[in-house]
Nucleic acid binder design. Sequence first.
DNA 1: CGGATTTTGTTCCCCCGTTCACAAAGTCCT
DNA 2: AGGACTTTGTGAACGGGGGAACAAAATCCG
Lengths: 218, 218
Amino acid sequence: MTARSSSESAREIPEATVARLPVYLRALTTLADDGTRTCSSEELALAAGVNSAKLRKDLSYLGSYGTRGVGYDVDYLRYQIAREIGVTQDWPVVIVGIGNLGHALANYSGFRSRGFRVVALLDADDTRHGEVVAGVDVRPFGDLEEIVATHGVAIGVIATPAHAAQDVADRMVGCGITSILNFAPGVLAVPEGVDVRKVDLSIELQILAYHQQRKAAL
Amino acid sequence: MTARSSSESAREIPEATVARLPVYLRALTTLADDGTRTCSSEELALAAGVNSAKLRKDLSYLGSYGTRGVGYDVDYLRYQIAREIGVTQDWPVVIVGIGNLGHALANYSGFRSRGFRVVALLDADDTRHGEVVAGVDVRPFGDLEEIVATHGVAIGVIATPAHAAQDVADRMVGCGITSILNFAPGVLAVPEGVDVRKVDLSIELQILAYHQQRKAAL
DNA sequence: CGGATTTTGTTCCCCCGTTCACAAAGTCCT
DNA sequence: AGGACTTTGTGAACGGGGGAACAAAATCCG
């Protein structure tokens, strides 16, 4: 962890809280769509699937946005959380690897609605270039540098086979990307200052299998 | 958490450890493929991307499978972990929702190689029925009960749009599925005893965006 | 055979996160 | 206006997990 500027706001939001903020954001959106103007921590906690005390403590890291005796204004709180996470701004994203998973990601509507804009789909396979997926051109992997520079991309998504992932990550880091979402199995080595989040589908199933096995053993 | 039979083995593996066992398993497989017969906790920890002390503590929950002064036998340890997780047995799995993501999941090779066998792809869309994806028939959602009963399915995967997820989960629980991997956004309500793991692609990106925003603010 | 060396298994301590419980602060009703 | 009531924000206790450090156990070498 790097030193923090002391003149900045003293907020130091715990990682566990950061991971839940998007959940609250989604719950608030659902409430707003249902026409709810105001909600208590109890209601919101129910919608988000968490304990109400935890919710209140999480929100307290952002500031005092509620009103005692009343609750939270849905729209106001939603905006505050969105701003805190950063989804009020536009995030250009590149996706590398246009297999089944890359396809699914490119088409996923949940990205665009939260400020993430897929600016390019890259693939090493020449035969795919020129194809259009979800309204975005499939381009050669070699175009990475140009695309990142042009659009100011800071976030990259790796959806390649495992053997290609480290090379892709290296190239991404090399051209200035500092946040990577990795769907390829295996460990990525990246320099200090680059954030990597890993999503491993088979690991999730294996965790379920472990618990299932325990349940079956009774 | 339900009461545990006291006559059973006293092992109570922490959740954090369970989540890392599949990572160790994959690292061991990589080492084995490279021809490594034996490895120290330091080497394995490096391959798995964790601290060696943490690795040793994790492994100690399974038993004493190492040899002091030598290290771990790669194949032996791999088998022990696989057995502990339960991936030495066959796990029939149903996937509901055959959109882009369902497609990607059905084709994902990482499932089959770890004992997970997709026995059916279900979708509410009539026009898809009869189609074959990744060698598996796409069938009506109404066939769920029959398929689960026939194959002894305990694990279900939800890859539907958000609005359908709760209904699908209810039906799954109703026919005896007790482990669910959910890719649909939103909170699932399930009875006690049913495990749900959630994978939310947009949440991962939002977490990255938060940190990216902090980095950019310097 | 015994000491030096290597590496595991475990103990101890600290920190982060969760939860309880309550004071503070607002609203509502009479 | 004032008291009852509701709900937030937070202080404090508690539990789990991470990491350093060390004792125990095995090999190797003279």
